[in-house]
Computed example of a mutant assay.
Amino acid sequence: MRGHCLKLLTRKYSSYPLNTSISRPKTIADLYAKYNAQQPITMVTAYDFVTANWAQAAECDVILVGDSLATCALGYESTNQIGLEEFRYHVQAVCRSPGPAFVMVDMPFGSFESSIQQGVETAIAFMKGSPRVGAVKIEVGSASSAFQEQDYSLKLAAELCSRGIPVMGHVGLTPQRAHSLSGFKVQGSKSAEDAAAIYHTAQQLQNVGCFSVLLECVPHKVSSYITEKLSVPTIGIGAGLGVSGQVLVQSDVLGMAPHTVPKLARKYGDLHSQSVGLIRQYANDVTARTFPDNSKNGFKIKDVVWAEFLERVSCSNAK
Rank of each mutant, 00 (worst) to 15 (best):
T201I: 08
E216D: 05
N207Q: 14
V186I: 15
A143I: 08
A146S: 06
G188R: 06
P258N: 10
S212W: 03
H272R: 09
S153D: 14
A195P: 06
S153C: 12
M168F: 15
L264S: 09
S251I: 00
S162V: 01
Q206N: 11
Q206M: 12
S180L: 02
R266Q: 09
I237S: 14
C161V: 15
E159F: 04
Q187G: 00
S224H: 15
K185E: 13
V171G: 05
A195E: 04
G236H: 09
V171W: 01
L271H: 08
S144E: 13
G169E: 13
S224E: 14
V243Q: 09
A158F: 03
G172E: 05
Y199Q: 08
E139Q: 14
A146M: 07
R280W: 00
S275Y: 11
D194Q: 13
G255K: 03
V249D: 11
A239V: 07
F147K: 14
L248H: 02
A257E: 11
G141V: 01
H179L: 00
G183R: 04
K185D: 09
Q206A: 13
E193W: 02
A143V: 05
V232D: 11
L278F: 10
E193D: 14
Q148N: 10
G277K: 02
V253W: 01
V276I: 13
V247P: 00
G238A: 02
C161A: 11
H259S: 13
S153Q: 14
A157T: 03
G164P: 01
E159W: 08
Q176R: 07
A192W: 03
I198M: 05
S189I: 00
T201N: 08
V167T: 10
L271E: 07
Q206T: 10
S275M: 11
S162G: 05
E193F: 02
L160I: 01
V186P: 11
Q250F: 08
Q176D: 09
G245E: 11
V218Q: 07
